[in-house]
Amino acid sequence: MIYAYALAGVILAPFAGVFIAGLDRILTARFQARTGPPILQPLYDIAKLWAKEPMIAHRFQPLCVYVYLAAAMVSVGLFFAQSDLLLIFFVQAVGAVFLVMGAFLVPSPFSQAGANRELIQILTYEPLIIIVLAGIYLSTGSFEISAVYAMDKPLLMNLPLLFIVFGYALTIKLRKSPFDISASHHAHQELVRGVLTEYSGRQLALIEIAHLYETVLILGLCSLFWTTGVLGTVVLLAATYLAEIVVDNICARMSFKWMLKSVWTTGLALSAVNFAWLYARGKF
C-alpha cells in the first residue's frame, strides 16, 4: 500500500508543482500591478527547455543533474510513503549537494560563486529544519510521518514558533527574497543565475522539475503542522505560501553573511523558546 502512495506521489507531484509555481507567478505579477503569465507557464518553460539543442558545459554535469532529480523524486516518494522525517530530509540533501557539485565543475565565476553561496544556504537552513523535525518528534514521540497523522491536535498548537522557524527554511529553499542569494528567479543581477548559470536546455528543464518536487516536499512538510482537517491544511498552506510571496515582493536580497547571522540567531532563539514552552508543559 505504501508503495502505491509513494508512486502516486512521485507521479502527481510535478503536476501539483506546476500549478503552484504558475499560481505563484500570477500572484507575484498581481502584487506588482501586472497581469502575469498563464497558469501553465512553468509547464511551457520546462517543455521548451527540454526541446532545446543539447549543450553541456562539463561532461559530468548531466550526471549531477539526474542525481539531483532522482534524489528529489525519492524524497517525495518517501514522504508519501510516510517514512522517517529526518531520513527524507537527508535524502533531499543529496540532491542539493549534487546540484552544488555540478555547478563547481565549470570554471565560470558565476557558477562557482553561486555554488559557494548555495552551500551557505544549505548551512543556514539545515540546522533549522533538523531542529523543527526534532520538535515534531518531541510532540509525537516518533520521527515517522504516520505518527503525526495519529495526533488528535494539530502540531501548530504545540510548535507555533517552530513553524516560523520552518518558514525561514522554506523561504531559503524556495529561493525567495531576501534569501535568493545563490540563484534568484530573476537573472538580471550580479551573479547572472548563480548556481544555475551553466546548466542549459534539458538539464535546466530537469532542474526545474526537481525544483517542483522540492516545492511539493516542502509544502508537504508544512502541511504536517495541521493534520486534523483538510480545510485547516489547505488554509495553512495557502496562508504560508501567500506570506512567502508577500515577503518575496517586499524584500531586497541580502548578503549571505547577513543571512547566516540573522537566520541562525532568530531561528535558534525562537526554537529555544518553543522548546522551553514544550518543556514547561511537560511534553518531555
Partner: peptide, 10 residues
Amino acid sequence: SSGAETAAPY
C-alpha cells in the same frame, strides 16, 4: 547527452 557540444563557460 554525451554527444552534445561542450560549451565554453559563461
